[in-house]
Every structure is written in C-alpha cells, then in structure tokens.
Design a protein around this nucleic acid. Structure first.
Lengths: 193, 193
DNA sequence: AAATGGTATTGATCTATGTCACTATTATCT
DNA sequence: AGATAATAGTGACATAGATCAATACCATTT
C-alpha cells in the first residue's frame, strides 16, 4: 500500500526505515469512486492527499458558473488546497475523482507532527512545492503571452498522458480557453498533419 | 545591515543567534542602481536575492518583444529565478531594479550549506515558497476568469503600495493586459467615482 | 533651456476567442 | 435495450481587449 509513497519520497530525499514506519501510521487510506468529491467549495480542506492510483482534478467555479481547472493529479502526486489546508479557512476549490482512485490522506495535525519529527520531509515538501511553483509561474506567463494553439501544444508536450485520460472540455479549462476553441484548434491541427 | 533579514526570518521560525551569525557570513551585500539588471535573459541565476531596500521586478520578454512581469519584489522579499537557480540552466527572466536598491546575495553552494546546517531555514523557505505558490495559483485562476477591470481592482487591494511606485505599463503587464486597456479602465473608474 | 526618453491618454480599427445554438456521437445508468 | 447524460464538432455572430497612431506630458540629462 505504501510502496509508491516510499518510492516518491526516496527519489528526492533519504529517509530511515524507522522514520518511514512512523510516516505510514499517519496516513489513512481511502477509495474515491469516479465523479465523487473529496473536497467541495466552502468546505475546509482537511487533508493533504497522496494519490496512489487514479486521477483527480482540482477546480474552481466562477460567478458565471464556468469551471477552471487548477490541476490534474496523477498517481504519485500530491493534491490539496494549500490555502485552506494551512489556514483552516473554507476552500474555493473542488477536488473530484475523474477515475476510481485510491488515496492516502493526512490531516493537518499529523502533517505538523510528521514534519517536526522527520526534517527530511520538510525538505521533500519544500522541493515539491518549489517545483510546483516553477510550473505554475510558467503557466501564468504562458497565459499572458501564448495563443490558444501554443497553450495546447505546450500541454501536449508537458503532459501527453493526461490528454488520453481527460475529456477535452476539461483540458480546455486547464489551459484557459473555451471547449469550442480547443475543438477548432484540434480540427486545424488534424488537417495540417 | 542584517536587521530586516533577521526580522523576516524570525517572523516565521525560531533561529538561534549562533545560527543567524552563520547565516550572515553567507550573504554578500550589493547595491543596484535604478534601471540596472542583476539577472539578464540567457544568464544563469547565480544568486537568490534578499531585498533590503528598493524595488525589483522580474520579467520575461516574449518573441514579439512584449514584456510580462512575473513579480515585483519589495523590501524584505526574496527574489530569484528558481528554475535557473536550482538547475543551473540559463534563465528566461530578467531582474531589474526599479529604484536604487540594496540587496543581500547568496549563491547556490552557500544556500545548500545554509539549509543543511540550519533546518529551521528549510522550514522558513518551505513556508515562503508555499505562500508564493498560493498567490501564483490565485493569479493564474484570476487570469482565466476575471475581466481586465477585476484584475486591476484585485491588484489595488492586494498591493496598494506597489501602485504608487511602479509605472502603469508595468502594472498592466503584471496583470496581463495592455497599457492602453489599463489607461481606459482607470479613466472609467475615475468618472464613476 | 533645449533635448531626450519614458510615460500616459485617447480615438479608430482589428482580431482572436468567446458565446450561442444546433447536431451527432458516445458513455453510463436503470 | 432503451433512456439519459456527457462529450465533441461546427456555423453564425458578438465582443473584450489588442493594436496602431497621434498627441501631450513629465523627468532627466547635457
């Protein structure tokens, strides 16, 4: 059950067997069926999620009812609304399973305990968050400077695997364009090939 | 010289005097005059900067020559191109002083040494980067869902101080709109007041 | 004081992309 | 199997905001 978690952590930092045993005691497993939510807008994000299997998306719904995808999470990735998790304030995001998924959940108190006792994990999460920040900064700059087609092409190269597993209208909302525009771009690209 | 750095760190974590003394030895001070660059596109980002005084902006220039502001940095903030700093790859960003500024610079080797020896700082930077990620995610979602006017209004509330110190066309490029559009929005808002 | 370069405003026009509406296709559920 | 819902494609039209161009205004430098 914890193999993937162990693998992911040790890819980045060293951790003793003892520390990892302790780590294991703090997570609770949960299965989440397709289309079910683990976090709904207005709730407090009680858990940080490690995704063992499946696919999640975190998204926000704006005043006009349009959905905007913050992130897709695949096996071996972490997922949470950081702001809500760390402040205890209600979340603006929803987190939904797009496939039947298996999660490992850790609460804020356990998380605090874990980082205090295992400094290597403080470092692990620092690096994780740092990489996420780099990617998010790139997405932001891209949203300013790239055309719809460039955004789609970049996504193809960055996450080819996600494209196969997620409906197009969610892809569109991840790159911040309408589903119609994405459909037309794909049509164009198919002709040019 | 190091008061602000000490203050900022101890706002978030506890650090012994001894550790802070060690910390001090790793930074080198530098003055940067208005309009001078500390990082240019294509260079490797050799330093992470702590800004003691002044104002920096990090920005990217796209193929059409348009500038896009990633971040303004004020007194007490940190600034770097994370990707370039951590990988040693050439940077896509420029970092420029918008006012005469006083910096404290730390190199990658020193930074590694520092975090290894002072775990509290690992935590400090984790929290710092985490907060930056939260803000960047919000900017990204905003870039998808907000009108130009909403983007400007949100900026007014988030960073009122920056508005007084930065020319409008840079504000515009921070929120991802043209300077003409920003000018018109401000005109509209002035009439409605 | 003139000259230079950065900055802001405003009008006219253009365009990429959104929105709306309809149809076709494919999954999913009972 | 049939019904329902989710997904995808496409045309017609609308529009927010970009782009282009001209002007005026400052602030710095010489």
């Amino acid at each position: 059950m914890f193999e993937l978690l162990h693998q992911k952590i040790t890819e980045t930092v060293s951790i003793s067997d003892e520390d990892f045993e302790f780590c294991k005691t703090l997570f609770q497993p949960k299965k989440l069926r397709k289309k079910r939510f683990i976090l709904g807008e207005g709730d407090v994000c009680k858990y940080t999620i490690f995704l063992e299997k499946g696919l999640l998306r975190s998204f926000k719904v704006d005043e006009k009812g349009a959905e905007h995808v913050l992130q897709f999470s695949l096996e071996g990735w972490w997922c949470a609304d950081l702001y809500s998790f760390f402040t205890g304030e209600p979340s603006n995001y929803n987190i939904e399973a797009l496939e039947d998924s298996e999660l490992l959940l850790i609460t804020k108190p356990s998380w605090d305990l874990l980082l205090e006792r295992v400094p290597a994990l403080e470092r692990y999460f620092r690096i994780l968050i740092q990489n996420n920040l780099i990617v998010t900064q790139r997405r932001l700059m891209g949203s300013f400077s790239e055309t719809a087609e460039e955004k789609y092409n970049n996504l193809i190269h960055a996450f080819p695997d996600i494209l196969q597993r997620v409906p197009q209208h969610m892809i569109a909302s991840y790159i911040g364009i309408s589903r119609e525009t994405l459909s037309r771009i794909r049509g164009q690209m198919a002709i040019r090939r």
